[in-house]
Design a protein around this nucleic acid. Structure first.
Length: 257
DNA sequence: ATGGCACGCATGGCGTGA
C-alpha cells in the first residue's frame, strides 16, 4: 500500500499538480490538507477522471481535508467526537482494507503568546485522546498530514532562530511527541534517521527552495505492526518546483500489506 | 530586526498561513 500526504494550499489552484501526481505515482491513498473549499464547491468533476474515491470536509476560505483512495473506504469519520469543536475541516479518518487512516491538518498556532497557540497545544491533547478512543497501538493504523511541528533541530533550517516559532517551540514539540507516544512512530525517521529532508519551503523568501531553507512538518506515522512493514518512504520535491506550486510538497510511504 | 508571497473573499484591503 502506497500512501501519500500533501498540503495543497487550495485544491482548486493545485488541481493540475494533484492530477499529474496521481497519474504518475499511482498511490493507493492520498491525504490532502488546506483544500480551502467548502463542500458545495468541491471540484469533484475535475477529479473524476482520476478514478479515485474521494471523501472530504471543508469550509470557506480556510482549512479543509480530503482523502483520495483507489478503493472505497469501509467507513468515514469526520472530526473529533469529544463534545468540543468538531474540527471536521481538520480531521478525517477512513478505514481502508481494515486499516484506519487518520488525516490531520493541525492548527498552526500563529504566535506563542497567542490563544491560537494554546489551542494548538490543546488540539494535540485531544488528538491523543481520540487515538486512545478509536485506535489500538497493537493494531495497524496510519496517521498522516500537516502536523505544523518540526520534531528535531535538523527538521528546520536555522533551528536556533526558531526557538520561539510555533512550529518548533519546545511546548509544540512536546505536545506532538506526547501524542506520538500513544503508539505512533515516524516512518521517515525510522528508515532515514540521519537524513535532512524538508517538506515545506516558505513562499515569502523567494530563495527558500534554492537555498533549501525549509521545514519538515508533514509526517506519516504508523503503529508498530505497520512500522515494520514500511519498505519505502520519500519526499517528492518536484511538485514544489512546478509552476504555481503549493508551499508544501508530497511525502509518501509504502507498506507491504 | 523586518518583511517577503500566496490564497480566498459579503474582494480594492484583510485574515490567514508558518
Amino acid at each position: 500500500m502506497k500512501i501519500a500526504t500533501f498540503n495543497v494550499n487550495s485544491l482548486r489552484k493545485r488541481l493540475p499538480i494533484v492530477l499529474d501526481w496521481l497519474a504518475q505515482q499511482k498511490p493507493d491513498v492520498l491525504c490532502l490538507q488546506e483544500t480551502k473549499v467548502q463542500d458545495s464547491e468541491f471540484p469533484l468533476l475535475a477529479l473524476a477522471p482520476s478514478g479515485y474515491h474521494i471523501t472530504f470536509r471543508g469550509m470557506k476560505s480556510y482549512n479543509g481535508v480530503a482523502i483520495l483512495s483507489r478503493k472505497q473506504p469501509e467507513a468515514v469519520f469526520h472530526g473529533f467526537d469529544d463534545g468540543g469543536e468538531s474540527e471536521d475541516a481538520r480531521l478525517l479518518r477512513v478505514i481502508l482494507d481494515g486499516i484506519p487512516i487518520v488525516n490531520t491538518y493541525v492548527p498552526q498556532g500563529f504566535e506563542i503568546d497567542s490563544p491560537k497557540y494554546q489551542y494548538k497545544l490543546g488540539w494535540y491533547e485531544r488528538l491523543r485522546k481520540y487515538f486512545e478512543k478509536h485506535l489500538s497501538p497493537g493494531k495497524p493504523a496510519i496517521w498522516c498530514g500537516d502536523m505544523n511541528v518540526a520534531p528535531r533541530p535538523m527538521d528546520v533550517h536555522s533551528p536556533e532562530k526558531h526557538l520561539k516559532h510555533v512550529c518548533y517551540h519546545e511546548d509544540a514539540r512536546k505536545a506532538y511527541e506526547r501524542t506520538l507516544a500513544w503508539g505512533f512512530q515516524d516512518v521517515f525517521v525510522k528508515l532515514y534517521p540521519d537524513r535532512q529532508q524538508y517538506t515545506f519551503w516558505d513562499y515569502r523568501a523567494p530563495s527558500s527552495l534554492e537555498a533549501n531553507k525549509g521545514w519538515r512538518i508533514d509526517h506519516i506515522l504508523a503503529t508498530a505492526p505497520l512500522l515494520e512493514k514500511c519498505t519505502r518512504v520519500d519526499v517528492d520535491i518536484e511538485p514544489r518546483r512546478a509552476k504555481d506550486p503549493s508551499d508544501h510538497t508530497f511525502l509518501w510511504a509504502e507498506f507491504s500489506v
